[in-house]
């Protein structure tokens, strides 16, 4: 909303711009001051920012909680990336059956809630294959459960990336005598991944937060992750400070990640 005082032609264009800007800053400052001075800071601090409660969460919130969140996320991302790449190649295949299978998989797993998939992995597979255990315990189950779903999303992203690589790249590689597989691995897929770095970052950040679903698998003290750790403290201390600490712990993961990706993108841009 612009509030330009006076008749429209009394001020020059620059004066009008400056006036508008001043009014916008004024409104913003007023809102901030209103919140700052009317909020009940003492009660809010008692409920959400108690230093003693926050202090009691260390070092547990870092180790094992944050470390486990990272492990769950990384496991799911790597597994999802591999399955997603295979699915993407199947969707682009000239073999109709491969295309059908991949399309069916993507449609199914994009539609299922992650919670349901995790439940199926955690309790369905042990019943179906009683003599075999999923390697890695909770870590393996999380990688599988989250990864199966992430693969469906990533497959579409990776397929778009592969299709964005000019056809001539594959042709040039094939005329040098490379097999289709070799050309994809050495030439096309590396360039596809450079194109899809931003959406893949999104995916890994979403996975970081989905890792909080680990509680359905019945985690123990050693493999607890951030959210479960915080909600346990929340229940014992009857105070919301753990949620704030947990939120900060997630930012500790995602902010450096964004920074890292920005660097990767810059590096890729130099080669372009």
């Amino acid at each position: 909303m612009t509030v330009a005082p006076g008749p429209p032609h009394r001020l020059t264009r620059r004066q009008r711009q400056r006036t508008t800007r001043i009014v916008q800053y004024g409104v913003f400052a007023a809102v901030v001051l209103l919140v700052v001075f009317t909020a009940n800071w003492r009660d809010l601090q008692q409920g959400f920012f108690r230093p003693d409660v926050a202090a009691s969460m260390f070092p547990g919130v870092i180790f094992p909680a944050l470390v486990n969140t990272l492990l769950f996320t990384l496991g799911a991302f790597v597994f999802g990336l591999i399955v997603g790449t295979v699915l993407a190649l199947m969707r682009l295949s000239s073999v109709r059956v491969y295309r059908w299978v991949a399309t069916g998989y993507v449609e199914l797993f994009r539609g299922l809630p992650v919670l349901v998939v995790l439940f199926a992995v955690g309790y369905g597979i042990p019943i179906a294959f009683p003599d075999r255990a999923i390697p890695g315990g909770v870590y393996g189950k999380m990688a599988l459960g989250l990864g199966l779903t992430a693969a469906a999303y990533m497959a579409e992203t990776i397929r778009a990336g592969i299709q964005a690589v000019p056809r001539g790249q594959l042709e040039a590689a094939r005329t040098l005598g490379m097999s289709y597989t070799r050309a994809m691995v050495s030439i096309v897929i590396p360039q596809a991944f450079r194109i899809i770095i931003p959406p893949l970052t999104n995916e890994i950040i979403l996975l970081t937060k989905d890792s909080s679903l680990a509680y359905v698998l019945g985690v123990t003290a050693t493999n607890v992750e951030i959210t479960k750790f915080a909600s346990d403290v929340l229940n014992t201390r009857v105070n919301a400070t753990p949620l704030v600490v947990a939120a900060l712990a997630y930012l500790v993961i995602t902010l450096p990640l964004s920074q890292l990706v920005r660097r990767l993108e810059l590096r890729a841009a130099r080669a372009r």
Binding site: P166, G168, Q169, E171, A172, A173, R174, T175, L176, G177, M178, S186, I187, P190, Q191, R194, A268, A271, R272
Partner: peptide, 26 residues
């Protein structure tokens, strides 16, 4: 195909590789 060289209108150099790697990868 190893014995047949091909040069394209649009060059089709591998953009993610240096000139050296363009020549050595195959």
């Amino acid at each position: 195909r190893r014995r047949i060289g091909m040069v394209f209108q649009q060059f089709n150099l591998f953009g993610h590789l240096t000139v050296r790697r363009n020549l050595t990868v195959a």
